[in-house]
Measured scan of single mutants.
Amino acid sequence: CKVCGDVASGFHYGVHACEGCKGFFRRSIQQNIQYKKCLKNENCSIMRMNRNRCQQCRFKKCLSVGMSR
């Protein structure tokens, strides 16, 4: 997965992504979610083991690796 490094389940929203990141991105855009501000200057490292800790940084990384509708 380009977002968290887990095993990708396919090509989702323009990038190779796992089911977790695919679902997270889908919910984020469909529900237009505004995530809580990052407590670490929006510089969190997103990996499989910690991908749920900072939703703002995870969504930012989804966009930075090329995920789009």
Rank of each mutant, 00 (worst) to 15 (best):
Y13K: 06
N50I: 07
Q30I: 05
I33G: 08
K60I: 15
I33C: 05
N41D: 10
S28V: 07
V7I: 13
I29T: 09
V3R: 00
K60L: 11
K40N: 15
R48L: 14
Q56L: 12
L63N: 00
R27L: 10
C18Q: 01
S68M: 12
R26G: 11
N50R: 08
R27K: 09
S28T: 15
D6K: 01
E19I: 02
N43P: 07
V3F: 02
K37V: 08
R48T: 12
G5Y: 00
Y13Q: 04
S45L: 10
H16I: 09
C57R: 00
N52Q: 10
K36W: 08
M47P: 09
I29L: 10
Q56D: 15
H12Q: 05
K2I: 08
I29V: 10
G14Q: 05
R26E: 12
C54G: 01
C54Y: 05
R58K: 06
C54F: 00
N50E: 10
R27A: 09
Q31H: 12
C62M: 08
H12G: 07
G14R: 02
R69T: 15
H16E: 14
R48M: 15
N52G: 04
G66K: 08
A8K: 07
C57G: 01
R58F: 14
G14W: 01
V7H: 10
C57W: 05
C54A: 05
C38P: 04
Q31P: 07
C18S: 01
C54N: 03
M47G: 13
E42R: 04
N32L: 03
I29N: 12
S68C: 11
V65I: 09
R53G: 14
V15T: 00
R69N: 13
V65L: 03
C4Y: 01
L39I: 14
H16Y: 11
C57I: 07
N43V: 10
M49I: 15
H16K: 06
M49F: 14
C54T: 03
N41P: 09
F24R: 00
C38E: 01
A17L: 04
K36I: 06
H12N: 10
I46K: 02
Y13A: 07
S45I: 12
H12I: 03
F59M: 08
H16G: 07
I29P: 02
C38H: 06
Y13M: 03
N52P: 03
R51P: 14
V7M: 12
C54H: 07
S45F: 15
Q30L: 12
R58N: 02
F24Y: 05
Q30V: 11
G20D: 15
N52R: 02
G14C: 03
R27V: 13
Q55C: 09
S64R: 08
C38R: 01
V7E: 13
R69P: 15
S68W: 00
K60N: 12
A8I: 10
K60Q: 11
Q56Y: 12
C62P: 01
R48K: 12
R27M: 13
C54E: 02
C1T: 09
K40G: 14
I33E: 07
A8R: 01
V7A: 10
N41Q: 09
I46Y: 13
K2E: 10
R58A: 09
D6V: 05
R26M: 15
R58M: 13
Q30P: 06
Q56E: 13
A17M: 01
E19Y: 08
C57F: 02
F24S: 04
S68A: 13
N52K: 04
K2M: 08
S45P: 10
V3N: 02
N50Y: 09
K60V: 09
I33L: 11
I33Q: 05
F25W: 08
G14K: 00
K36G: 13
I33K: 10
K36A: 10
C21R: 10
Q31Y: 09
G66D: 01
C57M: 00
V15C: 04
C62Y: 06
K40S: 13
K60P: 00
F24G: 02
K36C: 07
A17S: 08
F24A: 00
Q30C: 05
H12C: 06
Q56S: 15
F24L: 09
M67F: 02
Q30A: 13
V15Q: 03
V15D: 03
K61L: 07
A17Q: 00
K61A: 08
I33W: 04
I33M: 08
Y13C: 06
K40A: 14
S45D: 08
R27N: 15
V3A: 03
C38L: 00
M67S: 00
G23D: 14
C1G: 00
V65H: 01
Q31M: 09
E19V: 04
R58Y: 12
K2D: 06
L39P: 11
R26I: 15
R26C: 08
Y13F: 13
L39Q: 11
I33T: 09
C38F: 01
H12W: 13
K37N: 15
V65M: 12
R69H: 15
N32E: 14
N50Q: 13
M67W: 07
L39H: 10
M47R: 11
C18I: 08
L39D: 15
K37A: 13
Q30D: 13
R58W: 15
C18Y: 01
K61F: 05
S28W: 03
N32C: 05
D6W: 00
S68R: 08
M47D: 15
C54I: 00
K60W: 13
N52L: 10
Y13R: 04
N32Q: 14
F59V: 08
R51V: 13
K36T: 09
Q56H: 11
E19G: 04
N41V: 07
I46F: 05
R69G: 14
M67P: 02
F25E: 04
L63H: 04
M67D: 13
K2C: 05
R53L: 14
A8W: 08
Y13N: 11
F25R: 04
L39S: 14
H12K: 00
R26Q: 14
C18A: 06
K40R: 12
R58I: 02
I33R: 06
R69Q: 13
C18G: 01
G5S: 03
S68V: 06
N41C: 03
Q56T: 12
S68H: 08
